[in-house]
Design a protein around this nucleic acid. Sequence first.
DNA 1: AAAAAAAGTGTGTGCGCACACACTTTTATG
DNA 2: CATAAAAGTGTGTGCGCACACACTTTTTTT
Lengths: 367, 367
Amino acid sequence: MGKTKKITIQDVARHANVSVGTIDRVIHNRGKVSPAKREKVEEAIKELNFNPNLLARTLALGNRFTICALIPSTPYPGHYWSIPTQGIDVAAAQFNDYGIVVEYYYYDLFDETSFVKQAGNILNASPHGVIMAPLFLQESKTFTEKLKKKKIPYIFIDADLPGGNSLSYIGPDVKRSAFIAGKLLNSVLPENSEILIVNMVKGFENAAALRRIEDGFREYFQNKGLEKERPIQVLTISSTHKETVFRELTKFYIRNSSVKGVFVTNSKSFLVSEYHRQHELDIRVVGYDLVEDNAHHLKTGGIDFIISQGPFQQGKRAIQTLFDYFVFKKEPEKIQHVPLDIIIYENLDFYISFNRLFMNETKDTIT
Amino acid sequence: MGKTKKITIQDVARHANVSVGTIDRVIHNRGKVSPAKREKVEEAIKELNFNPNLLARTLALGNRFTICALIPSTPYPGHYWSIPTQGIDVAAAQFNDYGIVVEYYYYDLFDETSFVKQAGNILNASPHGVIMAPLFLQESKTFTEKLKKKKIPYIFIDADLPGGNSLSYIGPDVKRSAFIAGKLLNSVLPENSEILIVNMVKGFENAAALRRIEDGFREYFQNKGLEKERPIQVLTISSTHKETVFRELTKFYIRNSSVKGVFVTNSKSFLVSEYHRQHELDIRVVGYDLVEDNAHHLKTGGIDFIISQGPFQQGKRAIQTLFDYFVFKKEPEKIQHVPLDIIIYENLDFYISFNRLFMNETKDTIT
DNA sequence: AAAAAAAGTGTGTGCGCACACACTTTTATG
DNA sequence: CATAAAAGTGTGTGCGCACACACTTTTTTT
């Protein structure tokens, strides 16, 4: 009872009256095998329900796969990009023994040249696969074309590059996420409230993505026939620094006092919330990404909703997708949209703890 | 560049001028090793950043761990319990080569005796670990006490057993989930609407859990001072069959026509939604669990919110927790609360697809 | 019909580690 | 000071698989 013995190629060999060499030839469809024996072996495999042991195979093959991760650096501990990085770390640790080696190539979120430089470094390293956040449109295109020439597969996370020929895109459906933001914000707004969309970007790189976010957001109100009742304005700030953001917000609010809801299109909604708090403004806020600062403002009520795009899962899934591609030659889905988690004060804790609890475990075992 | 060589105990042995046997003794802290060499070895391990290869270790040890899963059977394909089962399947496949063998012992959700019988079977099988959904209070207690005597660790999923001495509980914070249900339902209700809580249970087994759900739900309205404005009634139906549920709903609604919102405390909210549709009632519904039928009613608008308690993750995490416990002797957190996902029409698809996409991969590679 | 080529099959080694065992050196014991 | 006991150390085998290679049998070529 319950003695599910391990079936090995030895067992199959014995059962089919051949040697392990023949089993090997049949499994990998190589070398020469007489039709009679081939059939006998295939029969035996089915009968015994033989599954090759991946551990032994990996050990015997001894091959290594290097993956380069081209992602933004984490300027301070609670920063957004620390989360995908953790996801990558966890998966990397899990697959380390299978020969997966992950190397990070960090670039500066606000500096294209750092991106280009690191991209060059990756090309020199000639890894087996690449994970990247293609946040700079043109530079990313240049890079991926070179990767394609070298036949190095690459996966996009966080943002997609339309027509980028990636092995897979793992990230949010941004238009949909903005649509949800609209729905959520609308649900907490009194009648006849004006709405403000706050963008914080340095240049024009993300223009296309921002466009889709705005579209998605507006679409909700159009679908509900609320365009008139909820006028939407847009404020684009070319910085994420507190002082600049505050100054721009002031410049806006002193001219627009009837705004009752704000949608922040990046992970910095806590800045807006903090501004509201300091100036005693009762304005509802919806934003992205469950970073520590946002969690704090969710708790104090300054932020009403945070939409989280499974950043941890993005990193983890990216590694796993490449692993499956390397080891099992499994073609992944071209688009893997992550769940858009709706985070409120009441369910916040669980999202933070559930993955963190486990990370420690994994890390301990590796170190 | 990037030539991260695999460091083996051989490398360490050479570096420390000892044999692999000594390395082994140091790593496992067994046998006799002179202090001088021990230090040299430890030094070498650190210097080379040696990490034992889990694959090779597993292969050499060759031990097997059997895990029995005592969970409700899946009466029809889209049933709730098919999802945790899938999570278990995925993790089982992943750890299969590590010697983890999972055996299912299904019981009937509405039949205590089937639970007891399967529990007995598990005791006979004497597995290394158990995963169970302790849905029958008394029977579960009896069972876990026997497990404790046999020193077999067990993990609860889906529901906790207070003071049950489990290795870990992986599931929702039910009170909190109900609180969230209150918040969500309230957000879509007009002023002065009555609310109905619908329970569907056979006996009195789940009485304690139901109590906590009701408490959590009511707590929201109390905290907001809405007890008066939103009277809450409770309807408990002792069946999940459509006909019975419909009959009981009719009996209730013909006497209570001012109910505008319903909170269904199990995964069958689609039944209530269907009833509303057939009888053209404009009543809002909040329920649990993203089963297929609920997804469908979310899409048609008959259900407004579904709270999902990561059923897939529950199964997966349970296996992984036992694996870490067996292999790394890692004591898990006693309580691992899963995220309480708020599912609406707009983000439903991603929750369904994200895990499903990957399940196929894993299954293909194993079969 | 002999030689060469091809087809078919088995054996042996190593991947990195755990563990049993043999062996040598030191210490304790009478 | 001999001898038993303990401490300290190295070697060899196997886990399940991949792969190189040697070997035998059959088929093709001249």
